[in-house]
Amino acid sequence: MTEIISNPNAVTPATETHPLLRVENLAVHFPIRAGPLATVSGHVKAVDGVSFDLHAGETLSIVGESGCGKTTCAMAIARLQTPTDGRISFAGQDITDLESRRLRPVRRRMQIVFQDPFSSLNPRMKVSDIVAEPLVVHGLAGEPDVLRRRVGDLLALVGLSPEMGRRYPHQFSGGQRQRISIARALALEPDLIICDEAVSALDVSIQAQILNLLMDLQQRLGLAYLFISHDLSVVRHISHKVAVMYLGRIVELADRDALFNDPQHPYTQALLAAAPVPDPDRASPYLPLKGEAPNARNPPSGCPFHPRCPHAISQCSTDVPALRQVGNRSIACPVVAPA
């Protein structure tokens, strides 16, 4: 794997007024069909009013319960899923309704590593062709020799030998496939990479190499990452900012240290407390969240977390709390952050 020298704390996120990505009130609702005629009987509000800014050179992570809408959010931003409402701006341009022809230059600058690596790799293509594809599609392939070398370099960057490019996706392990997806996303040197559980199938050593690579590219090229992950220690390591989602909404958004050292939203607190510790002598007692997992098709009234919240007051079951700036964070909770 290529060696990268990076200086701790050298990265200072850009703070100019123009964010690279601005998401405003994003909503994605899926119709629920029922009965023999498949009539629409309601909607799943998979994403319901999500807003955030992401600047060049910055990593924003999204964490939250399985099924809370992270992937749907990512797909909408990458314009692979039509938003029901809201606006997505990339590099100052509103891309919410951009037609596919005019979306091409945007796609070049915004890449996504999908959560399920295998289903996103064409099983009939050799891995070297898969990694080369974005370069070919965007007319940046160059001479065959140059392309071959470039693909070899990309594979080496993610810890695969260039000879392995001759094989097909099914001949690789889960983590190797994940690294193929990362190599492909890096091929175009995009400005933004959306990583949806992009390192979840890697052992911690290879994961460390990949995270070092991502941080190094960020430092050199000013890449931004929208990083979706369940691994809280990874999130803590690489993020500048962290958004916590619950049932389609952001409930807390703060700088990494503020969020991890001083979580405020009751859901954030419950989430951080459940992280398993790599030490058998410090087995944390299992304290499940009380109550049932929330149903996105029939969400609780008021604050979606209130049925499971230890601090809920009567207002929580009636009023949907808005995300408000309080001190060093944005938070949606009338109890810990009263208006």
Partner: peptide, 28 residues
């Protein structure tokens, strides 16, 4: 492997420790 775990004791955004060198190719 144990040394590569990103934990609270590691400085955020610092270079993570990883095992030197490349993973082996089982074919070679």
């Amino acid at each position: 492997l144990m040394a590569s775990i990103p934990g609270a004791s590691v400085n955020p955004r610092s270079r993570l420790k990883a095992i030197d060198g490349s993973p082996p190719d089982v074919a070679n």
